[in-house]
Design a protein around this nucleic acid. Structure first.
Lengths: 211, 211, 211, 211
DNA sequence: GTATAAACGAGACGGTACGTCGGGTCTTCAA
DNA sequence: TTGAAGACCCGACGTACCGTCTCGTTTATAC
């Protein structure tokens, strides 16, 4: 049911190869076909046959790479999720913005936007997918939380601020708009969101200094 | 693929009834069996046979009411979503709390928590389910937004506050925790969340008055 | 699975009746609808709903009279099978003709021609239907056999004649033509058949006397 | 509803084969499982699942070969019907015996004896099955008719003999005993039957020569 | 008359088989 | 050995039918 996340190809193979070599370009072709198929029909509606046809590939070629539909799904989701990189510019608002913007970007990119609902649904019942998702989310969330913590240490925000709550509100607003309202949030809107959020923890003197 | 949401029974029937009347109690029995089955196995893993067995009912009895698995799902989801009632206590924090708490409650109740991920996944590809979901979300959201607007009119919060953003952050934090982090938010945590959120729009004099 | 053959209505009812009396005309209506339905679609293809619709009757009205589809079938078959009456004219050929002609008639009448194949098929697996069929066939066959035996006693035919074989050939030819060749045999052809058959047992002097 | 009778596999396939070839041994396994199932429960009582289980095969493997239960039935019936080979020994009685015995054999073999009633019932409503059956019967019948005609040309039998009638009586007796009386006719009984039948057309001189 | 009780048309109900389709495995040929 | 094709086993889907069970309505007889 699972697969080792992060490894490009799930099934390990020996370096010494005999016979026809595997065509590595097919990996990407299959994954993007899978993403397209799932985007069009949902993971439930998507079929391996459909993905294979879309990729111009035989069913066996898919199963040779991923043991099951779920594994392919999991791998495809992993492929489109890229971890948020740490940003430490010294400016609280900028750091927070830098941590949150990639989330908004991912939610806007059509591949992940197409996969995310199915990914969440599968995660609810598949521990492996859940683990993958949780790990990724925790990493991204941690970047933002640390930015908040640094700001608190610097005294840029009030000490009573709960970093986790602040981050959950920011990331949550993006997810909520995407999943529940069906709306994307562009960079400008993200900036507005961050600005309003930081007011909840701004020190009296800091409220006017940043734009 | 769909059916008219909100109607108790999807298939419309004439008021003049001939023959044995449909046993309306079975509707609830089937829906709760469906919710239980989906909770246990996910919507993908749930089977009509399993639901029928759980409900002590024949498969035909289910298909007589809902033309397909998807329709039953849609109806079951609707059945567990209860609209948020307006609250106008005069206290901004209380009104906001009253508007947000039901969302947290729903996300905590096991039935909806089990259905929601699948519901979102289906909504992504089924316009009818999407419409149903959007309508419900918009209603709940509107209650909270209006509470914020009333507060602004009363001068309880700064005029520059964007009500939608505030509400999205609150609701979003709950959804984010539930779906992405897998955490429930209890009443106390909701209160803490609201308290921190209102600081982002508090007037200078209001920051100390409530604890 | 069975029912008491020969009784017009299978389920016995007390003479003292209260409530609305059963409408006896419906028996015939239903049976003829059943015959029509079976003729059109075969017993396997026929449905109780179809018969009920054809008869302008509710399904319960049928099941009140016959406990199952098989019982209705069995009853309908019985209704169209009328026993061959004995004939003892003193002429061997005439008696044989009188015994065989009704068989040809039945095989020609559309009702039985429609039911017979299904009847045989059901008889193969339903002991009750088999019993009904065998009894009727044995009775008809016995009439012909006795005509042959009387002729032997009178010395009209050679003593070595096997009556059963002779009768089986006659009746068999009719059945074979009907079931296997799809041909009906009219009265003239029956007469020709009998004439050829009696030659197999004719005494040397008897061959020319009958026309 | 039909398929081309006589072809081993109903669905035609191209000579250029790609992919895993169909396992031709399964055809026979399935057919014999079907015959066994039908023999045990009748065609109406037999189920595809039962046949599949008996054959140790998936349902799809059956449907890949025959589009419907009826088609499998038709094919199975064809498979057990083997045409009668011509016999021209010079002896009228022997030729006739040789032509009729295979019919008795088929009616005795349990496979066909089990299938025949259902086959006749289906033939009544399915033109394709009817055609198949009629063709086979006509072939067998023709062998016997030609034997009679040869005898007439040789002068072994009286010129007035109607070959068709004679054959219908012989074959009919066998069918009648099997279907209506439920009795098998063994080789000795067939010989007795033929002997009695030929007396109906024997020339005066020939009556004593054969025993 | 009026009450009783069964028959009737209609259709819901629990089952079960049908025929379809998809998942995941295995087996052929060609590259 | 890879890859395309497709057969294979399994099992769920949605349909249709069987035989049973209510409903509301009609229609006889009993009181």
């Amino acid at each position: 049911m699972s697969g080792s996340m992060g490894t490009p190809v799930v099934v390990e193979r020996p370096t010494l190869r005999r016979g026809r070599p595997r065509d590595d370009r097919l990996d990407a072709v299959i994954v993007s076909a899978a993403v397209a198929e799932v985007g069009a029909k949902g993971w439930g509606g998507a079929t391996i046959d459909g993905i294979a046809a879309r990729a111009g590939v035989g069913r066996g070629t898919i199963y040779r790479r991923w043991p099951s539909k779920t594994d392919l799904f999991q791998y495809a989701a992993t492929a489109v999720m890229r971890p948020v990189e740490a940003s430490d510019s010294g400016s609280f608002v900028e750091d927070l913005f830098a941590a949150v913007l990639p989330i908004a970007d991912m939610l806007t990119r059509p591949e992940l936007a197409a996969l995310l609902p199915s990914l969440l649904a599968e995660a609810a019942n598949d521990p492996s997918i859940r683990q993958t998702l949780r790990t990724f989310v925790a990493q991204s969330r941690q970047q933002a939380i640390e930015a908040v913590e640094r700001a608190r240490i610097r005294g840029d925000i009030v000490a009573s601020t709960d970093a986790e709550t602040l981050v959950d509100m920011l990331a949550g607003a993006l997810v909520y708009r995407r999943l529940l309202l069906g709306e994307a949030t562009d960079a400008a809107a993200v900036r507005a969101l961050v600005r309003q959020a930081v007011q909840s923890c701004a020190t009296p003197t800091s409220t006017e200094e940043d734009s």
